[in-house]
């Protein structure tokens, strides 16, 4: 499930007041999250949670729920 901290990190980077992010939400469904901005959002999440993703780990994520799970798995290590 998408945590509030995760959601806020995304909203802050994309300068959005609010947007309903669910597990099945795709990146391109979030306003402003386009291919050029993608990397900025990933870096913002890495900074927020003080984690470092491998390229393939992010590329394997199908939706934001997968990305949240990836963050969770990194934090719990």
């Amino acid at each position: 499930m998408i945590s509030d901290r995760f959601k806020q990190a995304v909203l802050k980077e994309l300068k959005l007041d609010d947007f309903d992010i669910k597990d099945e939400t795709l990146a391109n469904q979030v306003p402003g999250w386009d291919s050029l901005n993608h990397i900025n959002v990933i870096v913002a999440i890495e900074k927020e949670f003080k984690v470092r993703f491998k390229s393939i780990e992010v590329l394997k994520c199908k939706n934001l729920g997968d990305l949240q799970k990836l963050v969770d798995s990194k934090i719990s290590k």
């Binding site: 291919s35 990397i39 990933i42 390229s55 590329l59």
Partner: peptide, 21 residues
């Protein structure tokens, strides 16, 4: 191109920030 080339390139050069993009 976005999925198989651009995004992996972006990821691998993210330390370079805007320049990497």
């Amino acid at each position: 191109l976005q999925e198989y080339l651009f995004t992996p390139l972006q990821m691998s050069m993210r330390n370079l920030k805007l320049f990497g993009n």
